[in-house]
Design a binder for these strands. Structure first.
Length: 884
RNA sequence: GGAGGAUUAGCUCAGCGGGAGAGCGCCUGCCUUACAAGCAGGAUGUCACAAGUUCAAUCCUUGUAUCCUCCA
C-alpha cells in the first residue's frame, strides 16, 4: 500500500467549499429514500431576509447542523428545512432608507413600484444569506427552502386568517396600540423595547370647578392633559375619600372632569392622584374602560397635536407642545414643582423611535383559547424545553396573554384578506380574491390597505413549509417536527405562537423538543450590536479559522442555554483541535507506505488496543447521552479529550515503537488498528467538525462512501474493557510520576537515566509495564528500566518518588553535578536573602507604609513572599542533594 | 413590584452529596522527523457570604450580598 500524502498544514480553505459543493451535488442533504425508523425533522428559524447573519445565527445553525448530521448518520429519514422571513418593518425600512438617499419617499413610488423594488432587495439579500449558511456548512435541504411570502406560504397565511375569522377569533376594534410615528405603524406589545431614560415629573394644580381650591397631580407628560377625562385616586386612600365625585377644571381649557376612585392608582407615587388619559396611556385606557370614560385622542398620525386640543397647540409635535404647555401652565400659576424623574420609555424595536400609545382601528386575534391549548401541550409534555426552566416563562406568558394586534400600516407583507364593499359597506373575508360583493353583487370593492404582522406568517412555519394547508406527503412524513433550536429572546414572538397555531390548525404541537440557546455576547458580556461595533462576523471567523473551528468552538461553549461570551481569539481552540486532527492523520497516512491492512481479531488485542477501543466506546456513549439531552458542550469535550488526550497522546505514541521498529507483521497490525480507530473517529466527529472529517475520510484506504451519510458509531457494552482501562490508568500514573521527578529537578530530556521500579505485590499493572517496557522507557527517558519487587530502600544515589501501589527510584546522580548544583542553589539563596532584607526594611518603615501608593506596598509584600518561597524551596533541594 | 439566571483558577466557563476541572493565559524545560497551532512538567481556588439538613455540602434548603435578564 502506498502512503497517502496530506498537505503539511491544516488549511480549511483548500477544501471546505469543494466539499460543500460535493455534498450538494450528490444530494446528501435531503432525506434518504431508503432511510428507516422514525423521521427526524427540524425547521430553521428563518433569518430576516434583509439581515446579515451574525454570531447568533452561527450558534443557532451550528447546533442544528450538529443535531441534523448526527441523526442523519443514525440512519433516520432526516430533513432540515431552511428559509427566510420577509421581516415586514425591517425590510421596508431598508428600502425606505435607500429611497431617502435618492430624495424619495415610498409614497412617491406608489405601492406597486415600491413592492417591486423591495422584491429586488429581498433577492439580493437572500443570496447573501444562503451563501453564508453554505459557508458555515449547514446541511439543510435546499430543495425544501421556503420564504414566508412564497405562494404556498401566502396561501397558508390566508387560510389561517380566514379560519380564525370564521371561528370568531379575529376582530377589528378600536384599541390603544403602540404606535411608531416614524414607521407609521402599530406594533405589538412585544415589539416595544423599554429603556430607562431621564425625564421630568411635573406637579400640576387642577382647580376645583366650584372654586374651593385645587388638587395636585403628577405627570411625566403634561401635553397629554388635553386628553384628560378624569383624575383618579385610590378608593382606600383616606386623604382623598371625601373628594371623590367632585369636578375639576382642566387648566388651559374650559373642560370639566371628575375625580374618580380606581384601585390601580399607586398611593405612594407623586401625590397619589393621577390624571386619566385613556387615549394615550395603557393603564389609563384600562381604567377608562372600567369606568366608562370617553377616550379623547389628541394626536394626529404624525405625532402632532390634533383638533381636540386648544387652537394654539394644534399641529405641533408632542415634544415641542410639552414645552409650550409647561410654559403656559407656569404662567398661569398651575405648576407646583418640577422634579427629575427617570422612567421607562417604550421604543420601536426596529427604528428605536419613542413609541406613542395611539388610539386606532386595528385587527386582533383573540388569544385566550389559543393559549389554553398551548398550555395543555406543555402540561401533557407534548413539548419539552431544554433547559426546563423556560417552561415557567412560557406558562406565565400564556397565562397572562393579551390579544394580538396583527395589522401593520405597511406595504411589505401579506395583505389582510378583507375587502369592503364601497356600495353597501359589506365586509368580505375570503380565501380567494372576491370579484363582486356577495350582498349587493356590485364589484366596487376595496381591499384593506394594511398588511399582517410578520409573525403572522412565521407562526405557521413548521407546517406551512411542509405544504399546509395542502395535505402533502412532506406534511404526512415530517410533521410534527422533532426539535426546534432557538434563542430565548423570541420565545414570545415566535415559539409560543407556533405552538398555538399548530394546536389550533393541526391539533398537535409543532415539535417536541425545544432547545433554547443562550445569546452570543462579547467578552465583556455585552450584546453584540452595530452601534457598539463589538460584533464578530461569522464569515471573518471562517476566513481566519475555518468553518469547522467555528462550529466546534461554539458547540464547546454552548452549555445548557447559557450565554456564550466570545471574541476572535476564542476560535483558536477549535482551530487547534482541527489542526491536531489533521496532523495525526497525516502521520498515520505516511505510515501506510508498504503496509497491508489486516483484520485484527478481538482475541488478539493487546491491553493498549483494548484500552483505546474502550475509550472510543465510552466516548460513543457519552455523545449519545449528550445529544439526547442537548448538552452540546459535553459532547464536544468528550470528543476533544478522546481524540487528543487518549488517541494522540497515548495510543499513537505507544504505536510508534511498533510502526518504526517492529517487524512487518507488527507494523501491519499496528497501522491496521490505528486506521480502524481513525476511521471510527472521523464518523464520530463528523457532526461536530464536518468538513475536515469528510476531507480526511475520503483519503482513508478503509473508507466507503461519504462520511456525511456513513453510519454513526454506537456504544457496545461488550466493548467496555474496564480491566484494560484500569491497567492503562496505572501505567499512565507511573509515567507521570517519573516525568514529574525529572521535570522538578530540571533534567534535560536527552539525559537518559536508570530507573528502578518497585511495585507492591498487589499493584495491577506490573505485567503491563513489563510488556510495554520499551514504550515506558521512552516516555520517561530511561536508559534502563528495572522492575524489582525487592529493591531495598533507600536505593543509593537515587531520587525516590511514589504513587498508588508503587515506588520509583530515579538515578539522578549521574545526570547532575551534585556539588555544582548545591553551590548554585546556595548562591540563589544568598541573593534572595539580600533582596529579602531590602524588602523587609521598606515594609518596616512607617513612612513608606503611610505615604507610598497602595500598589507599591502590595508589590513589596508580594516580592517578600516570593523571596521567602524561593529560599524555602532551594533549602529543601539542598537537603535532598546532600543525602546522595 | 413579580419571575428567572449568575457568583468555582488571572480570563471565559463546565461540573457535582463523598478524592476541586477544561480551554485560554502564566511559569519551567524541550525544534523527541505528525503537529512549536506542538510535547512534557508546574503554579494558582476559604467553589460569593451566613445558617440549616446530612455520617459527609462547592453541590440540597433558607436567608444575605452583588451582578444580569425578562415580565409588569
Amino acid at each position: 500500500m502506498k502512503a497517502v500524502e496530506l498537505a503539511k498544514s491544516y488549511n480549511p480553505k483548500d477544501f471546505e467549499d469543494r466539499i460543500y459543493q460535493g455534498w450538494k451535488e450528490k444530494g446528501e442533504f435531503g432525506p434518504k429514500k431508503n432511510a428507516t425508523g422514525e423521521h427526524f425533522s427540524v425547521v430553521m428559524p428563518p433569518p430576516n431576509v434583509t439581515g446579515i447573519l451574525h454570531m447568533g445565527h452561527a450558534l443557532n445553525n451550528s447546533l442544528q447542523d450538529i443535531i441534523v448530521r448526527y441523526y442523519r448518520m443514525t440512519g433516520r429519514p432526516t430533513l432540515w428545512v431552511p428559509g427566510t422571513d420577509h421581516a415586514g418593518i425591517a425590510t421596508q425600512n431598508v428600502v425606505e432608507r435607500q429611497l431617502k438617499k435618492e430624495g424619495l419617499r415610498r409614497q412617491d413610488l406608489g405601492r406597486e413600484k415600491f413592492l417591486e423594488r423591495t422584491w429586488l432587495v429581498k433577492e439580493k439579500h437572500h443570496d447573501i444569506i444562503k451563501s453564508q449558511l453554505e459557508k458555515m456548512g449547514c446541511s439543510c435541504d435546499w430543495e425544501h427552502e421556503r420564504f414566508t411570502m412564497d405562494e404556498g406560504l401566502s396561501r397558508a397565511v390566508r387560510e389561517a386568517f380566514v379560519t380564525l375569522y370564521e371561528r370568531g377569533l379575529i376582530y377589528k376594534g378600536k384599541y390603544l396600540v403602540n404606535y411608531c410615528p416614524k414607521c407609521g405603524t402599530a406594533l405589538s406589545d412585544d415589539e416595544v423595547e423599554y429603556e430607562n431614560m431621564p425625564g421630568k415629573l411635573y406637579h400640576v394644580r387642577y382647580p376645583y370647578a366650584d372654586g374651593s381650591g385645587y388638587i395636585t397631580v403628577a405627570t411625566t407628560r403634561p401635553e397629554t392633559m388635553f386628553g384628560d377625562v378624569a383624575v383618579a385616586v385610590h378608593p382606600e386612600d383616606e386623604r382623598y375619600k371625601a373628594i371623590v365625585g367632585k369636578l375639576l377644571c382642566l387648566p388651559l381649557t374650559d373642560k370639566k372632569i371628575p375625580i374618580i376612585a380606581d384601585s390601580f392608582v399607586d398611593r405612594e407615587f407623586g401625590t397619589g392622584m393621577v390624571k386619566i388619559t385613556p387615549a394615550h396611556d395603557p393603564n389609563d385606557w384600562e381604567c377608562g374602560r372600567r369606568n366608562s370614560l370617553e377616550a379623547v385622542n389628541i394626536l394626529n398620525p404624525d405625532g402632532t397635536l390634533n383638533d381636540n386640543c386648544p387652537q394654539k397647540y394644534r399641529n405641533i409635535q408632542a415634544v415641542e407642545a410639552r414645552e409650550l404647555v409647561v410654559k403656559d401652565l407656569e404662567d398661569g400659576g398651575y405648576i407646583v414643582k418640577i422634579e427629575d424623574h427617570a422612567h421607562d420609555v417604550g421604543h420601536c424595536y426596529r427604528c428605536h423611535t419613542v413609541i406613542e400609545p395611539y388610539l386606532s382601528d386595528q385587527w386582533f386575534v383573540r388569544m385566550k383559547s389559543l393559549a389554553d391549548k398551548a398550555l395543555d401541550a406543555l402540561k401533557k409534555s407534548d413539548i419539552v424545553f431544554y433547559p426546563r426552566r423556560w417552561e415557567n416563562t412560557y406558562s406565565h406568558w400564556m397565562e397572562t396573554i393579551r390579544d394580538w394586534c396583527i395589522s401593520r400600516q405597511l406595504w411589505w407583507g401579506h395583505r389582510i384578506p378583507v375587502w369592503y364593499c364601497k356600495d353597501c359597506g359589506e365586509v368580505i373575508v375570503s380565501r380567494e380574491d372576491p370579484t363582486c360583493c356577495p350582498k349587493c353583487h356590485k364589484s366596487n370593492l376595496e381591499q384593506d390597505s394594511d398588511v399582517l404582522d410578520t409573525w403572522f406568517s412565521s407562526w405557521l412555519w413548521p407546517f406551512s413549509t411542509l405544504g399546509w394547508p395542502e395535505e402533502t406527503a412532506d406534511l404526512e412524513k415530517f410533521f410534527p417536527t422533532s426539535t426546534l433550536v432557538s434563542a430565548y429572546d423570541i420565545i414570545f414572538f415566535w415559539i409560543s405562537r407556533m405552538i398555538m397555531s399548530s394546536e389550533e390548525f393541526l391539533g398537535k404541537a409543532p415539535f417536541r423538543d425545544i432547545v433554547i440557546t443562550g445569546l452570543v455576547r462579547d467578552i465583556q458580556g455585552r450584546k453584540m450590536s452595530k452601534s457598539l461595533g463589538n460584533g464578530i462576523d461569522p464569515l471573518e471567523v471562517i476566513d481566519q479559522f475555518g468553518a469547522d473551528a467555528m462550529k466546534f468552538t461554539l458547540c464547546y461553549m454552548a452549555a445548557q442555554g447559557q450565554d456564550v461570551l466570545i471574541d476572535m481569539n476564542s476560535f483558536k481552540m477549535g482551530s487547534r483541535f482541527a489542526n491536531k486532527i489533521w496532523n495525526a492523520t497525516r502521520f498515520l497516512l505516511m505510515n501506510l507506505e508498504g503496509r497491508n491492512l489486516v483484520k485484527v481479531d478481538e482475541k488478539d488485542y493487546s491491553v493498549m488496543d483494548k484500552w483505546i477501543y474502550g475509550q472510543l466506546n465510552s466516548t460513543c456513549l457519552a455523545i449519545q447521552k449528550a445529544m439526547e439531552g442537548y448538552r452540546f458542550n459535553d459532547a464536544a469535550q468528550s470528543i476533544y479529550s478522546f481524540f487528543w488526550n487518549d488517541f494522540c497522546d497515548w495510543y499513537i505514541e505507544e504505536s510508534k515503537q511498533k510502526l518504526l521498529h517492529g517487524s512487518d507483521e507488527q507494523k501491519d497490525r499496528a497501522i491496521s488498528i490505528l486506521m480502524d480507530v481513525l476511521e471510527s473517529s472521523m464518523r464520530l466527529m463528523h457532526p461536530f467538525l464536518s468538513f475536515i472529517t469528510e476531507e480526511i475520510y475520503q483519503k482513508l484506504p478503509n473508507h466507503t462512501g461519504d462520511v456525511i451519510v456513513a453510519s454513526y458509531p454506537v456504544y457496545d457494552e461488550k466493548r467496555c474493557y474496564d480491566q484494560a482501562h484500569g491497567l492503562v490508568s496505572s501505567l499512565q500514573d507511573v509515567v507521570r510520576t517519573i516525568r514529574s521527578v525529572r521535570s522538578n529537578l530540571q533534567i534535560a530530556p536527552e539525559k537518559k537515566l536508570k530507573v528502578v521500579f518497585r511495585p507492591s505485590k498487589d499493584f495491577i499493572a506490573t505485567d503491563l509495564i513489563s510488556d510495554e517496557i520499551v514504550f515506558v522507557s521512552s516516555l520517561v527517558g530511561a536508559s534502563s528500566f528495572i522492575i524489582d519487587k525487592d529493591a531495598k530502600e533507600p536505593v543509593d544515589g537515587a531520587f525516590p518518588a511514589n504513587g498508588l501501589g508503587y515506588e520509583c527510584f530515579v538515578f539522578v546522580r549521574d545526570a547532575i553535578d551534585v556539588d555544582a548544583e548545591i553551590a548554585r542553589l546556595k548562591a540563589e539563596i544568598a541573593k534572595a536573602e539580600k533582596s529579602l532584607a531590602g524588602v523587609e526594611a521598606k515594609l518596616s518603615n512607617e513612612a513608606f507604609l503611610k505615604n507610598a501608593k497602595a500598589e507599591a506596598v502590595e508589590k513589596e509584600k508580594s516580592k517578600k513572599a516570593e523571596f521567602l518561597e524561593k529560599i524555602k524551596k532551594n533549602s529543601e533541594h539542598i537537603g535532598l542533594l546532600s543525602s546522595f
